[in-house]
């Protein structure tokens, strides 16, 4: 008998008392009921608590803010699907200057990514109550490696993509895409259970909330 058949057989035998699957009570909250201003305020508060840097700007100011944050970076990478307007103040991005595009047809190698200082991505949805940003690999976010290897992640969150609690966010997401939920810069609680920021993931997380 194959291991599969044997294990399934053991499990069926273990359930010979035919336990009934209970009705699932779902009395928990499905939404927070907060308005956009309250959501922005809460998300900012949570991100700061995680030691991320946050700013809230008008949509037209995003490119200026990105340029400012990248001022000291020697190099940066962006996914090809990033909103072109966001790069308006970074005219060298397409050239041989500091900026690199990462695309399906011409992906950067891990070694190349390791040599790059920063990455700029969009995001799929953000959860205000937990301070969580979800990336789903859409063209404006790119593949997972680019938002992981560079040490500085600049992430743009549109105000309309902010929801209150996790159930609202997961309803907006296709679970079969490669997903990354990010709540602050990388951290560890492994030494005396005290949280310390900055381990293997990007040690610097800048979130730009665009109205």
């Amino acid at each position: 008998m194959s291991a599969r058949e044997e294990i399934l057989g053991r499990i069926r035998a273990a359930l010979k008392d035919n336990p009934e699957a209970p009705q699932i009570p779902r009395g928990y909250r499905k939404s927070s009921g907060l308005d956009e201003e309250a959501l922005i305020e809460l998300l900012v508060d949570r991100l700061i608590d995680y030691k991320a840097q946050v700013c809230v700007v008008e949509a037209a100011q995003v490119s200026a803010r990105i340029a400012e944050l990248l001022a000291s970076a020697h190099s940066y990478v962006v996914p090809t699907g990033l909103d072109g307007g966001w790069l308006a103040k970074l005219d060298d991005v397409r050239g041989a200057g500091r900026g690199r595009f990462d695309s399906d047809s011409a992906p950067l190698t891990v070694a190349e990514l390791d040599g790059i200082d920063a990455v700029v991505t969009g995001s799929a949805v953000a959860v205000a109550v937990t301070g969580t940003i979800i990336l789903d690999g859409s063209p404006n976010q790119g593949r997972r490696a680019i938002s992981l290897v560079p040490d500085h992640h600049i992430c743009v969150v549109k105000a309309t993509d902010i929801v209150g609690i996790l159930p609202e966010a997961l309803r907006r997401i296709d679970g079969t895409r490669p997903l990354t939920m990010i709540s602050g810069p990388s951290a560890t609680s492994d030494i005396e259970l005290e949280r310390v920021e900055g381990v293997h993931g990007p040690r610097r997380l800048d979130v730009i909330i665009a109205r």
Partner: peptide, 21 residues
């Protein structure tokens, strides 16, 4: 687990995604 509102990173994957991972 860690007494946090949310852990810093959660990854989800479904089989193989071409060009990613």
């Amino acid at each position: 687990s860690t007494g946090e509102r949310m852990n810093p990173y959660t990854s989800l994957w479904t089989g193989v995604t071409e060009g990613d991972g």
